[in-house]
Design a protein around this nucleic acid. Structure first.
Lengths: 377, 377
DNA sequence: ATTCGTTAGTTTAGTGACTAACGAACTTGG
DNA sequence: CCAAGTTCGTTAGTCACTAAACTAACGAAT
């Protein structure tokens, strides 16, 4: 049986547990290799973990030759974590076990309905052990140390309140773009690749707002005020005789800014004014000249944003996300501007879609949860 | 006697050696605390290091009470390293022991003279043990892996060639702004302060060219192409209907750009046209209205650059350096723009002056040298 | 069916580092 | 000058981990 609070594990046992959680299913030799531990150490770690009820046998692995190895996985009741993406238009959530198995998920555009779905999901989790941690993704800037700032502290308290979690389950609040970047790090296209493959990159989200998640050496950069990647504050416009506005770049590149450009440039013989970015992109795809020109111009603007990011960070990889940013019609134009003005940089489009944020939040929650088990908290 | 190549030290001995090099002089209890090792472990490490001829007794420390402790320092012949700042207008160099003691330094605007001074300095270093490493600071972008790029490889080969170093002394090439940032990290104003004091910051150099050195968590960010902080490529000008130029920002903010603005705005009754930025700043300090206005405008431009950096990185601290950037008349204007448009960020002015680059290169060389001893390479 | 090569997991002996405890050396106060 | 208190450095014992050797189990070839 997995307990809520246990004596802390020995260091090697904790490492083995964390690796087993990441690998989902693994044999002892695999764990030994993954943790850089010897066979005897893994052996004693497994004994410790099994007696603590944290791991369990899960069949046998037969290789092409040699003795067959025992396969282990986390115990079914080792606990689970909760991730919530509290977006502007909808709330989605995900409950996963510490090994990443999806236990429940849901989403709703109605806030109260989302909360009751969440409560129902929590009630269903009786055989999965204790709820270890929860992470809530929000669209605001989150300070690294919530206690230092009353504003953030209030937001955390709100989140805990609305989740109606029992007792002392720790809740962390994280920026939604940062969460999406974490998701790209772990679940993205080439996340399984070798060194340098996806260790360092910028996830650039272009939707209603704009924002970037910066990952350097597999670590998320948060910044002193939690505002790293808040590119809305890049100096814009920036030219002789112009004064930059406060978050003027977001007003230009976010989807309201795009629609402002569209309505300003639209002429009578262009047909009915498109209502949203999707409509503009649809027209451009059909070959509508005005729409195509507007899309190309917008792509160049997004490209300049990517150029500015590479000028500062030179990450080698930029991943485009968000409702507008993910549109394939934008990609070529962004890539062209980036190649012309920036440093050699790969450009990719996120394939995680709208789920990226909740996926990343789930990843963070899982790492917190694993850490809680390992440290015995 | 310190040998050029030795068997690698044990991990704890290596740690103790590195700490002793950093502390210059230290007692065993100090080393135990600094390395988070126990007294017996430090004891055996010292025995190992003393028998290897890497450290030596250096007197006794008498406290206010209790037994007096033996003081140790690095052996005089533990080796030394070389740092060279190969600037556009002058070359300066510095030879330091692994504990940071300055053994020799010099500079010259004449290239051949600098090289002969360097050779003479090398000949003087007979009692200081082997030359362990050399670092050359250059103004170009340096790729992380020089071997991958023929251009950088050639530059490294050039540097080695011109230094006329014996045999197999490894030479590293590093960007000069990055070196200056490293110097700010270690030798700057508040480098001794507590956590967060100076762990993460941006060193912004404004001189003939512009560039930034980015330090995150006491580590220098180099970037995929070695171009992190090469802010010359920020999108500029950036406004509707304007096309950004290639490194146009450097042409605007670098000292030639400033002088272009000055000569463009200067009127007949403003007196003789100032010849260089120093002259402009001198006039502004005397209350010359045109010069003061031009300085204020330039400060605002530098401020926008700082704003863009904080919008991406939110480092919490920006340090101004370079011939133009260090000028005190600029500071208030930069701070005002930063406060108005950016995230809460401390602004400081570098106090290391023109020495910053060679200081930082020396620091890098020293760390390479210490590492070489520890790993036995 | 037996043997061989390979892989799993355990036993054993040894290393490196820690804690605890102790003697040595030093300062200060009577 | 001696006792008390404090700090240094060593000795002794313990703990966690490793490497190497060994036993166990399995597939394939003879």
């Amino acid at each position: 049986m997995a307990t809520t609070t246990t004596a802390p594990l020995t260091e090697s046992a904790g490492e083995v547990f964390a690796q087993l959680a990441r690998l989902n299913r693994a044999t002892r030799p695999q764990l030994a290799a993954a943790c850089a531990l010897s066979k005897p150490t893994v052996s004693s770690a497994m004994a410790e973990l099994e007696s603590a009820g944290l791991v369990a046998r899960d069949g046998t692995a037969h290789g092409s030759t040699g003795r067959s190895a025992a396969v282990y996985r986390l115990a079914a009741d080792a606990g689970y974590v909760l991730a919530v993406d509290r977006g502007h238009t909808q709330v989605s959530f995900r409950a996963i076990a510490l090994d990443g198995t999806v236990l429940d998920e849901g989403q709703s555009t109605r806030l109260d309905r989302a909360w009751s779905m969440l409560a129902a999901a929590r009630r269903r989790r009786t055989a999965d052990g204790p709820l270890r941690r929860a992470v809530v993704a929000v669209s605001d800037v989150v300070l690294p140390d919530p206690a230092a700032d009353p504003e953030t502290a209030r937001r955390v308290a709100d989140a805990v309140e609305s989740l109606r979690l029992p007792g002392q389950v720790p809740v962390a609040v994280e920026n939604n773009v940062n969460c999406a970047a974490i998701a790209e790090l772990h679940d993205g296209d080439g996340s399984g690749e070798g060194p340098g493959g996806r260790d360092t990159f910028v996830y650039l989200q272009v939707g209603v707002g704009i924002g970037a998640g910066i990952v350097i050496g597999r670590r998320l950069l948060r910044g002193r005020n939690g505002a790293a990647g808040e590119v809305a504050r890049l100096a814009y416009p920036w030219a002789d005789g112009r004064e930059p506005g406060h978050e003027a770049l977001e007003a230009r590149i976010g989807s309201p800014g795009l629609m402002l450009q569209v309505s300003g440039a639209w002429r009578a013989d262009d047909g009915p004014l498109p209502a949203d970015p999707e409509a503009v992109f649809a027209l451009a795809a059909e070959g509508h000249p005005r729409a195509a020109a507007l899309v190309a111009r917008h792509a160049a603007e997004v490209g300049k944003l990517a150029v500015s990011l590479t000028a500062v960070l030179d990450p080698g990889l930029v991943i485009l996300g968000g409702g507008v940013g993910r549109n394939p019609l934008l990609t070529a134009g962004v890539a062209e501007t980036l190649a012309r003005l920036g440093w050699p940089t790969k450009l990719e489009v996120s394939r995680l879609g709208e789920h990226a944020t909740v996926l990343g939040a789930a990843h963070l929650a899982r790492e917190h949860g694993i850490n809680a088990v390992v440290t015995g908290a």
